[in-house]
Nucleic acid binder design. Structure first.
Lengths: 197, 197
DNA sequence: CTGCTTTGTCAACACGTGTTGGCATACAAT
DNA sequence: ATTGTATGCCAACACGTGTTGACAAAGCAG
């Protein structure tokens, strides 16, 4: 299988087309025919190489958040590092409609939702775990972080709320970083926030 | 038109059924037939009384955020007031699948997205405007607030990320309030956060 | 009771969907 | 050149969709 078959080019074209369609339209509104048209081939090829619509989707939505390794980051720059990385990941339109696909589809497609849950449960929690001392706090902090990061992506890249789209990257990062930084290292829940320590 | 027609009961049944289906399945996956079945009537009635699928949706997604009047709230309790109200609005499952409908559908349906943009543009900005001095800052602050609030709803009530679902309301409100409070009254962008002021 | 409007059901349409099998062509091996 | 196989296209299927119109029953007006 390490040999390149003649069909690899078509396979790749299908995958690229599928990503574009899924990202633009979500799971339900994307049709096999549309994918095939964009790839410039026949719909039946999509079936042959990926088995079913769910098959293409699974292949297209195989995503890695590629979060930075927080262990090497100064403790007071965690928020900024994470948020800047996140924003750039979403901004870099080219190859990264992956995240759009996942988020768009996760809202109506239970398979995609489960996948997203897994990815966030694993990758974000792992990143957070390298930073938080008390293991019992990890899920809570990871959840709060997810709340802000996904909300940011949702408003800016999916819903395209004008004021959020209008924000320049630096202002955005500066504002949101503080939040994420606190969710990572600050007090959570009902603890006093301005304590002496 | 103030008189109650005989068909009002059916109309109401259709609307209730539509809300349930749209909230559960989103716009695309909800079928006229499913709505009719849930309402216990014939699919053609849905068409007769609401014209088209888009018509039913428009009627079902006519939503009012009912944000509290921030003018009467002490300045340092703004975040908590807003967030608690928001969480309760989403928690109160009964009549309020309205928000689920809107958010779920806005991700794939452009009409719904536009509606959500309008609602947030108007209602949130208005609420924020009663609190912020500099009018130029209103959109930015409203946008940031939307980011966190919609992200919260997304993770907790749509995607159901386990750690976010697991959080009890008080912890949630306590943690997120601080963020919203800062987006409303704190420094934004690249200003120094701990300045001498 | 006789007519007329309203409320509802039934059956069907035109269309788009995922999916399948058959058939031509281009390539690879002998 | 002659096989055998991989690659691609075409036509069709079975099904579910939004939507429409004809027709029956129920309520009301005269």
């Amino acid at each position: 299988m390490a040999f390149t078959k003649r069909s690899d080019k078509t396979r790749a074209a299908i995958l690229a087309a599928a990503r574009q369609r899924f990202a633009a339209d979500g799971f339900e509104r994307t049709t096999i025919r549309a994918i095939a048209a964009e790839a410039g081939i026949d719909p039946s090829m999509v079936m042959r190489y990926y088995g079913s619509k769910d098959g293409v989707f699974a292949a297209a939505a195989d995503v890695d958040l590629r979060l930075p390794d927080l262990a090497t980051v100064p403790r007071d720059e965690l928020g900024e590092t994470l948020v800047r990385h996140w924003v750039q990941r979403w901004e870099g339109g080219l190859s990264d409609e992956l995240l759009v696909i996942l988020l768009r589809s996760a809202i109506t497609n239970e398979t995609a939702a489960e996948k997203l849950r897994t990815i966030f449960g694993a990758q974000v929690a792992k990143a957070v775990a390298t930073v938080v001392d008390d293991p019992a706090e990890v899920p809570t902090r990871a959840g709060l972080v997810a709340t802000q990061m996904l909300g940011l992506a949702l408003c800016r890249d999916i819903l395209r709320l004008p004021p959020v789209v209008a924000l320049d990257v630096d202002t955005l990062v500066a504002s949101v970083s503080v939040t994420v930084q606190r969710y990572l290292t600050g007090p959570i829940g009902r603890e006093r926030s301005g304590g002496p320590a």
